[in-house]
Design a protein around this nucleic acid. Structure first.
Lengths: 231, 231
DNA sequence: TTTCCACTCCGTAGTAACACTTAAATATGT
DNA sequence: ACATATTTAAGTGTTACTACGGAGTGGAAA
């Protein structure tokens, strides 16, 4: 079992330390690092290598400077494979709805107990999302448009993190050379990832890779603007 | 406006003639041909060129030999771009559900009046599906799993029929040469279709075409078996 | 410590896809 | 019968992708 790397983003140091202690006590989980703001988070992320990137980011909504909403948008765009779990005091349908549409995979209230938190984090690592009973309640009441919600990923383990990154860009029509430049890799490296992706997914070509990605919720077509406009 | 070509499949000649008269009276619609059974239909379809193929097949469920269910399966697999509308006396959730999961785009009761039929046929030609108030009622009551239902196509007119056929096969990972063989065309012809598809959809490569097809419900990923099995 | 795996990269080669242009045959609608 | 759209196809490239084998590094797990 791989260690689940979690990052805590909150402007209050006491909150960060508290969550760090709690999460560290969960077996197979570790707090990779902490950040006190969105900007701080991005700066630290940028300095990390691929295998230092967290699997899950616990993101506080109310922060100085770049707040949770802005940060979420940025993460969804630039780190699509990192799961973003929201941590907030506020719990209204409007804000939950917004965050879920911004690709958040979970929404925890700040007074969540450690059992619930552990369960949630494990579910996120396992299948990509986790909804608390309270969020489900909102969905049932129709207060949340869960059509935009992050979908469960069927087989989270088949592909490695780098492979998922590459797959995401393939689905966005980038070609090998461009992907290599974006990650600052050699073309041959990206070609290797591509080949391994095809072997693992039993795809014959790019079309197969895209179908796989969409079928397994590794890529959301709505990220692309390929939907014909209504006249 | 293109003429909407409809085909009627029913084992009773009187029913066929009746529907033929009714449909012929709708402006911009014509009955391309009739068939008295599933086998008969397939035989006649095989003899048609691409531009003689019907847009919509009105399919009776209760027939001798190859029945409506079998025929639907075959059509979904071999003529994915022809809209199949079911025509039946039976109207139970079970059977409606089955047919919708088999890619039927509409379900008419046999005593449907001509106004409703005309409206339905036009909607099908325009956006790919049509649900009567009764079917909606079933969906509302939860008797129908409409997640498998044929989705609305946003822009039905952008692509030609041949282009849609080619696009479908591209999404199934066939390469140009194979597609050419399947339709008995030259490779350069398929390359032309491919090129036109890319221009029309503003795609850079196959990945873009697949994303377009899925985003606009021209291809259903579930047709592919790329969903990772749960362990 | 050693094994394992993810990530990185190279060489060589063949093939499919992509780019751009042109244009004839064939239906279709009016 | 005429204008229009679709389908078919060709020439002539260039580029990107696919295939296969091999290999070094560093980090994490056993």
């Amino acid at each position: 079992m791989k260690t689940i790397r979690v990052v805590i983003v909150d402007d209050q140091e006491l909150v960060r330390k508290g969550f760090k202690l709690i999460i560290s006590s969960f077996s197979g989980m570790a707090v990779a690092f902490e950040a006190e703001s969105g900007g701080d988070l991005l700066q630290q992320l940028k300095a990390k290598t691929i295998r230092q990137l967290p699997h899950i980011i616990l993101l506080d909504l109310s922060m100085e400077g770049m707040d949770g909403v802005e940060t979420s948008k940025f993460l969804a765009k630039n780190y699509p494979n990192i799961h973003v779990a929201i941590l907030s005091m506020h719990f209204t349908p409007a804000i939950v709805n917004l965050m879920i549409s911004l690709n958040a995979c979970a929404y925890f209230k700040k007074n969540t107990n450690s059992t619930e938190l552990e369960k949630g984090l494990r579910k996120i690592a396992e299948k990509g999302n986790y909804f608390t009973e309270e969020v489900y309640e909102m969905i049932r009441k129709g207060n949340i448009n869960h059509s935009n919600a992050k979908k469960e990923v069927i087989n989270e383990d088949l592909l490695t993190e780098r492979e998922r990154q590459v797959l995401d860009l393939i689905c966005q029509e980038y070609e090998t050379k461009e992907i290599a430049e974006m990650f600052d890799l050699g073309i041959r490296t990206v070609e290797s990832h591509r080949r391994n992706l095809m072997v693992k997914t039993k795809a014959r070509n790019m079309a197969g890779l895209v179908i796989y990605a969409i079928s397994n919720n590794l890529f959301n077509p709505s990220k692309s603007n390929k939907i014909s406009k209504l006249i």
